Simulated assay, not measured.
Amino acid sequence: MKWAAQWISPAQITLLRVVFGFLPILTLALSMRVLSWRHLRHLHHFFVMSLLATAAYYFAFAQGTALLLSSVAGMLSGAIPLFAFVAALVFLRDEPLNPKSVGGTLLGFLGILLIARPWTGIGDVDLAGVAYMLAGSMSVGVSFVYARKFISPLQLPAVALATYQMGLACLVLLLVTDLAGIDRLYQDSRATWGLIAGLGLCGTGLAFVLYYVLVQRLGAVVAASVTYLPPLVALAIGVLWVGEPVEALDIAAMIAILVGVCTLQLGRQTTPGPQEVAQHAVVKPE
């Protein structure tokens, strides 16, 4: 996303990511024969999910990454489980509200605050970029709630849900994205193949496929644990590969977010929360 943002707009990045991620998902769905015309009666639910968990989510992250260091953007993506918990607490009211869950939530948002550092003023960390990353995380969190209430009861194959969701997102993005200058991406082969192969085919399409394989073989809770890895991976890539600076405060912030999420997990009861819906909702590992 960071490389591509030097050549094309965040909306164009989002469109290409979804298109090239949709192709392997569609191929898998057709080979498994899980698509059915009967599913069209639920089209309105698929459309909402295409906005919450794909189009709006990916656009916000692309916009945020364009304004922030990739390592900082990656660390902020660790807030996704926090927003999922808060959204479930507000709208579903079936998440445990106890000292551990409250403490974990507060600790996670403290980490976000340490990354944003609003007290330093404009110029250190772009607050608009932080806002976009948090908006994307919130969009995914709300999508868990929507999927729990309206998608999970349908009992449709997960690959079919992913296909409908991403296909509709492709149509929406094609309608609203200005394609002027999108060919500039091809001036940089690193950005081109990074977006098509890395972000699209691997980071979106194949990531969904592998995720559902994990859900089937290991269960939703274990599979959903990949949500906690992107901040670590993004920080490592940003520092070691891209050469971005990192401060001790950034490390402390990331640790606070991850510890907050782990504390949330410890504070959960047997009632399934947002992560358990992952086998029915479309939640992408970053």
Score class of each variant (00 low, 15 high):
54 T>A: 14
286 E>C: 03
224 A>V: 08
176 V>W: 07
168 L>H: 09
172 V>Q: 02
85 F>H: 01
237 I>E: 05
101 S>C: 14
185 L>S: 07
220 A>V: 15
131 A>I: 07
242 V>P: 00
100 K>N: 09
255 I>E: 04
138 M>D: 00
128 A>K: 09
255 I>A: 15
285 P>S: 12
226 V>G: 08
268 R>C: 06
17 R>V: 00
243 G>I: 08
163 T>R: 12
38 R>C: 01
218 L>V: 08
214 L>K: 02
156 L>H: 10
266 L>H: 13
178 D>I: 06
239 V>A: 11
28 L>P: 00
238 G>Y: 09
56 A>T: 05
121 G>S: 10
266 L>N: 06
113 L>C: 08
248 A>F: 05
48 V>I: 13
129 G>Y: 02
205 G>H: 11
151 I>S: 05
157 P>I: 14
89 L>A: 13
242 V>N: 07
68 L>T: 02
214 L>V: 08
158 A>Y: 07
27 T>S: 14
210 L>D: 03
30 L>M: 11
285 P>Q: 15
240 L>I: 13
223 A>I: 12
158 A>Q: 13
152 S>C: 05
187 Q>P: 01
165 Q>F: 08
200 G>P: 06
267 G>F: 06
197 A>L: 15
124 D>W: 10
271 T>I: 15
180 A>N: 11
97 L>N: 03
233 V>L: 14
46 F>G: 02
33 R>S: 11
11 A>G: 01
216 Q>N: 07
116 A>H: 12
159 V>F: 12
136 G>I: 02
146 Y>Q: 01
24 P>W: 06
134 L>W: 04
258 L>R: 13
20 F>H: 04
77 S>H: 03
159 V>S: 10
64 G>I: 02
277 V>W: 10
187 Q>L: 09
92 L>F: 11
182 I>L: 14
183 D>T: 14
49 M>F: 08
96 P>N: 09
155 Q>L: 13
86 V>F: 01
35 L>E: 05
109 F>R: 10
96 P>I: 05
114 L>V: 06
282 V>P: 01
101 S>D: 05
145 V>E: 03
113 L>F: 14
270 T>R: 15
1 M>N: 03
100 K>H: 11
60 A>E: 05
216 Q>E: 10
259 V>D: 07
279 Q>T: 11
118 P>S: 14
136 G>P: 00
258 L>A: 11
187 Q>H: 11
162 A>T: 09
256 A>Q: 06
149 K>F: 12
276 E>F: 15
82 L>G: 06
279 Q>Y: 14
75 M>Q: 06
136 G>M: 03
118 P>C: 14
67 L>W: 02
2 K>N: 01
154 L>S: 08
276 E>G: 12
108 G>P: 04
27 T>W: 15
68 L>A: 05
108 G>F: 06
